[in-house]
Nucleic acid binder design. Sequence first.
DNA 1: CCGTCGCTCGTACAGTGTTCGAGCAACGCA
DNA 2: TGCGTTGCTCGAACACTGTACGAGCGACGG
Lengths: 252, 252
Amino acid sequence: MSSNADSLANSVWTRPPRSRGGQPALSRGQIVRAAIELLDEKGLDGLSMRRLGSRLAAGATSAYWHVATKDELLELALDEVMGEIEVPEAGAADWRTAAAALAHGLRAMILRHPWVTGLFGVRPAVGPNAMRMSDRVVGVLTAAGFSGMQVAYASSLLMSHAIGSATTEAAWRRSIAPSGKTADEVVDEMRPYIDELASRYPNYGAWWRENNAINVDAMQDDNFAFGVERLLDGLQSWLDRDAGDRHDAGRP
Amino acid sequence: MSSNADSLANSVWTRPPRSRGGQPALSRGQIVRAAIELLDEKGLDGLSMRRLGSRLAAGATSAYWHVATKDELLELALDEVMGEIEVPEAGAADWRTAAAALAHGLRAMILRHPWVTGLFGVRPAVGPNAMRMSDRVVGVLTAAGFSGMQVAYASSLLMSHAIGSATTEAAWRRSIAPSGKTADEVVDEMRPYIDELASRYPNYGAWWRENNAINVDAMQDDNFAFGVERLLDGLQSWLDRDAGDRHDAGRP
DNA sequence: CCGTCGCTCGTACAGTGTTCGAGCAACGCA
DNA sequence: TGCGTTGCTCGAACACTGTACGAGCGACGG
């Protein structure tokens, strides 16, 4: 819930972790780490406060002293994994490779922790690690020559692509995971069904008849890389084209 | 649960006239529609099977005869709202405006039904309406000159941007919704907190000092539109550049 | 020695998704 | 006409969820 009016100003991030004197058998960091383990193993639905308690060899509700609510715990977990993403500092590499590194890093993190896809749409990611990442990106893009709102727009474009793409990918992986088969095996088994679909959707059908020999896993990587390159091309050409009159741009 | 996806396409979407046996006070379409209403009003957590039952003036578990599980109901709801997106047919407009229409339509749908952001990452959207949309996009992009895997990559790029962008946007809106204030009011109230943040993150801080007079709502629209244009520029230049040797492309 | 503080945890409550089976209305067939 | 079958609804029950509350415990300052 936490529906405080000043939602951002008094969220988890402004409140220091509680722990002082006694013998804190539990700490906030420890709880968050255990929660991430559970989430990685069993997904978003697999995390319950009771389960978390027993994994920590603690009572079912002990975590509630360190963390106000389960949502808040998820927010902390999200920011924690956000910290795994590395973005080069502004001057360390040319901006295209730095931006590409951000996109690929963000995607890789999401695929490592697929449960974050269920969190991105709920509360904005504004924890310290997310902020650190934003800061780096702003630095890189400013150094590249973007200015004003275009800095924000370009950074949002990069992250949106990574989030959207990896979300779709995660959904696909999750749907084949319980079968225990590889992606290619699953596609092979689905061929009759896909053929039937292709017969009902003309454009898709025509495409499928010429492109049904695919290596699914390699395709996912290529797909993402292709998107990143096109997107960087688009940003690059914007940079080249309007090098002079960028002041009132943004509303074409 | 592999859920036979032809279920919706068949007879359930038939109108009130009659289905078969007794007096079916409930139908699948009716259930899905009521679920969407509830989801729009109260969000993903606001939908419970009991609440759905009572909104339909039916028993708490009556829906379970028409729908195997709550997840399946959500899948149906997702595909239903997917049907709201319009994509022009292949020849109806030049490909850039058609592609832009898809992206904007998808974003608008997500902002109208923000709960879908919690669904995209869970199961792939492969219902009939999603397929119809994919089919249109494939048609548009093929006519534009893309071929082979690039058709799939380009379409995925468009949709990823819309999904990622709207997901982030939906999160932001949700975080300010309970306060009842406008986005700009919230930003104004958050200014001290943001200033404090800006002092701790150098690049972001420098940017913020020059760009703190923003109209948040207009910015969201511009942000998305900017991304779509950059992305289409990138695709366009790929189209122009490799007009001849596109056969083995995709792995640069 | 006592009080207080930091912290844990058992219990309880309202709510969840889903299963099961009893029950009812209408139909096809005898 | 009667009967069995089928399509559908729904109340009760089960195992589980997030969270509030308060009793209790160990360590510390006075």
